[in-house]
Design a protein around this nucleic acid. Structure first.
Length: 571
RNA sequence: UGCCCCUUAGCUCAACUGGCAGAGCGUCUGACUCUGGAUCAGAAGGUUCCAGGUUCGAAACCUGGAGGGGCAACCA
């Protein structure tokens, strides 16, 4: 399950994978800029499960370390006691490893609280920070707007001694939440809003999942992040575009704290994917409000959800590689991801026959009680894997209802009265008669078979237009198949009418459960979690959580490219 | 009415830093015939956002403009 790839030593990135960040790292090495090997980090806050956007960042940060012979740390940015939890810490570690990466060191920003506090005192002593005692609203008003300068806090001129005393008493727990805050003393008229005396430390009398009640003051992101990077000796601190303006405070802090050769922040565009939402806050709502079964619901864009769905880590890594990294926001087509998933599974998983929507077929000229075992290839000719199994053939079969039409349109190459088709790995059969029930629904097809056409043969050279899948009624296993589809019905789930939110864009058909599917008996002995291609249908995995030998359950990972559906759409 | 970033094929990205604008996905067509998949072959698709300028030569450099995004949480 966890196929962890150890960090390999210096293999330079192939030319094809060069992006502006890798160019920069290569340049760092060439010029010896940092005087140390490239060092990156992946810094999630443990307040939710990792999703595809994080996967992109993981592949970037760990990928660079691996390609350039550097290191990559996993650091939990756990500076907000209100939202964080060990369960997320555990899930994140599991997901990073499952993706195929191993951190060189595991750190927690909460382990740096003491060092961060010391730096805070240092800044105070140098007159670079002060304790502000305005309330939240006053601070906000004092900051001004993007087009007008802010105003200095009345507490800005406090003496070093007074600030030091206040800061120490903040730490000692003498003050309630919100009564004081430590701010950098920079410039309230700065064009960059972030530089208008940014908040460094706030008071929070709250239980922290790791530090318990040791601390009642907590650093804010801008204060903690760059300094944590510097403490760890990171060279390139990669983050998403919305942190661009934070780079200035990042540089200011590591310089004021006295770090030599400090890390440099570099921004790249976050991933946006059609038909999905990549925001931890919104994903949390889907979980909390019961729109999905949990963070690992197979429809979720989380690593855990994709894993449970059946997607392999290799596919996610390949996807990250093809989308690349850039400096501009971009929305990636879901087809690109689905292609990566198919491309990966195509070369890996065995083919099997499964009928999703069974329609009875009786071969009237086939002896009753006879069962033939046909040899079936597990892989097509162009997949470099071998193996065969046998599938039973008998007088009574199931085929997929979609493969029969009473009044077929043009270009329908499957079953219809009087038309001959090939049963995959079996015989040519021709439908001679339709049996209907009182409601007029087709409930059975009566067919004849040609004994000369077994297993791909056609002695007289005649050809059929279609080959369809089937299973033998007597030996097929009943199973449940869960057909997962896109969670949202529109490309941009946030693009909804006034007064509605992304929940109104949910796809009501994102999960269709087929409870009476029929699969060939060979799969009965396979372990839970085995992946297959159900021929002509899609890629599936037996559901790890609910599949049992008595009751097989399969998740659809992704459908096959369906050119017939396209044909139908054209009319 | 501010500062910063971005703009190349439908989508994601290239173009060795000034030298014939390319690739993958998607789309279309064809081949194959025991998967209407895969695979293979081919095609369509470009005023490099616009207007000036520098240059023998500009996607790249300069100026101006347009469009998109980010920044005014005691979140990260």
């Amino acid at each position: 399950m966890t196929d962890i790839i150890p960090s390999e030593s210096s293999t330079p990135a192939p030319e094809s994978r060069r992006d502006f960040i890798r160019e920069l790292v290569a340049d760092d090495i060439a010029t010896g800029r940092f005087g140390r090997a490239p060092a990156t980090r992946f810094p999630p806050e443990p307040n939710g499960f990792l999703h595809m956007g994080h996967a992109k960042s993981i592949c970037l940060n760990f990928g660079i370390a691996r390609e350039f012979g550097g290191t990559c740390n996993l650091r939990f940015d756990d500076t907000n006691p209100a939202t964080e939890d060990v369960k997320y810490v555990e899930a994140i570690q599991r997901d990073v490893q499952w993706l195929g990466f191993q951190w060189d060191a595991l750190y927690y920003a909460s382990d740096y609280f003491e060092q961060l506090y010391d730096i805070a005192e240092l800044l105070v002593q140098r007159g670079k920070a002060y304790v502000d005692s305005q309330n939240e609203e006053q601070i906000r008003e004092g900051r001004g707007t993007v087009t007008s300068a802010g105003t200095n806090s009345p507490y800005r001129a406090r003496t070093v001694d007074e600030n030091l005393d206040l800061l120490r008493r903040m730490r000692a727990g003498e003050f309630p939440d919100g009564s004081h805050v430590l701010r950098a003393k920079i410039d309230m008229a700065h064009v960059n809003m972030i530089m208008r005396d940014p908040l460094l430390i706030r008071i929070r009398h709250a239980h922290h999942y790791r530090r318990g009640n040791d601390w009642c003051i907590y650093p804010l992101y801008d204060f903690a992040h760059g300094l944590s990077d510097a403490i760890e000796g990171i060279t390139r601190s990669l983050c998403t575009l919305e942190f661009k303006d934070s780079r200035e405070i990042y540089d200011w802090l590591v310089a004021e704290a006295g770090f030599e050769n400090p890390p440099r922040q570099m921004e790249f565009a976050r991933l946006e994917l059609d038909y999905t939402i990549l925001s931890k806050r919104k994903l949390l709502r889907l979980v909390n409000e019961g729109h999905v079964s949990g963070w690992d619901d197979p429809r979720m864009p989380t690593i855990a959800g994709l894993r449970r769905r059946g997607v392999r880590a290799e596919a996610i890594r390949a996807f990250a590689e093809v989308i690349g990294v850039a400096r501009k926001d971009a929305r990636v087509e879901i087809a690109t991801f689905e292609h990566a998933v198919r491309d990966d599974l195509n070369m890996e998983v065995p083919r099997v026959l499964c009928v999703l929507n069974p329609l009875k077929v009786v071969i009237t000229n086939y002896p009753e009680g006879q069962v033939e075992w046909m040899e079936a290839q597990n892989y097509p000719h162009d997949v470099p894997k071998t193996g065969t199994r046998t599938v039973p053939f008998s007088r009574e079969l199931w085929i997929d209802r979609d493969d029969f039409m009473e009044d077929p349109p043009k270009k329908f190459y499957r079953m219809s009265v009087g038309r001959e088709v090939r049963l995959r790995f079996g015989y040519f059969i021709t439908c001679t008669e339709i049996v209907k029930n009182d409601a007029g629904e087709v409930i059975e097809l009566r067919c004849t078979y040609d004994p000369e056409t077994r297993s791909g043969q056609s002695p007289d050279g005649r050809k059929v237009q279609g080959t369809i899948h089937w299973v033998s009624a007597g030996q097929a296993l009943d199973c449940e198949v869960r057909l997962y589809d896109r969670l949202f019905a529109q490309p941009d789930p946030d693009d909804v009418p006034e007064g509605q939110d992304f929940l109104s864009a949910l796809n009501p058909h994102s999960l269709v459960v087929v409870s009476n599917a029929k699969v060939e008996p060979s799969v009965g002995s396979d372990p839970v979690g085995t992946r297959y291609q159900f021929e002509r249908t899609g890629y599936f995995m037996s559901e790890p959580e609910s599949s049992t030998p008595e009751r097989l359950v399969f998740n659809r990972i992704v459908g096959l490219r369906d050119s017939w559906a396209k044909e139908l759409k054209k009319g």
